[in-house]
Design a protein around this nucleic acid. Structure first.
Lengths: 102, 102
DNA sequence: TTTTCAATATCGCCCTTCGATATTAATACT
DNA sequence: AGTATTAATATCGAAGGGCGATATTGAAAA
């Protein structure tokens, strides 16, 4: 399957998407899963949640538990360090795009 | 170190760079190492060579041994499948860039 | 033959990804 | 009250990959 090949290429993209959305407004896991799916990234919960945890322990995201309609959700927001990383990613994504666009 | 964090984000970018350059003209390992370094990607030979091997066994690159000034180099060119993957990557890189640019 | 050098390959450790399954906590139903 | 249901999150073991350090290759120079 070339799915495996594509995933290898796009896992970093997924991390960047997460940072981007977490900057716009706090996100939670299953919403992010749906958002990524709409962008054409197929990824399961067993992959996403460990990624969120590692991004938190890497200091890119902070977690806050909220009670929404009786359900507890873990909302993740971007940290200052996360924003710095995102800026780096924006630069690199632009360079990559410029270089391969034609 | 946040180097580890950045590497996680950019490994896919590196794969795409490799595909792009292998399409322009055949590449070999140590040249690619230098090229990536100039683009700001720090990566060692112990990482790059296994990547080239896996991209070959995934059918994205083909290898051809050439004798250059008495030295044997392994030149990698892009395959048809590699070109298809690269097109996918271009689309996704453009979407990513569009989404996070501001 | 020995040294030197550029280029490539391999080693073992550790971490991550993955699909599948389990857990949690609150509501709806009978 | 007890059970089923549901959304959201967490965890499991297997498999694979990244990493730095080290080893190997092959040819030319000394």
């Amino acid at each position: 399957m070339e799915d495996k090949v594509l995933r290898k290429l796009f896992l970093g993209f997924i991390h960047i998407h997460i940072l981007h959305h977490a900057k716009e407004s706090p996100i939670f896991g299953s919403w992010m899963l749906e958002e990524l799916r709409e962008h054409g990234y197929s990824i399961g919960p067993g992959t996403l949640y460990p990624i969120l945890h590692s991004m938190e322990s890497d200091g890119l995201l902070t977690r806050e538990d909220r009670n929404v309609e009786g359900k507890i959700r873990k909302y993740y927001s971007i940290t200052e360090k996360g924003e710095q990383i995102l800026v780096e990613a924006q630069k690199k994504a632009y360079e990559l795009f410029k270089e391969i666009k034609d």
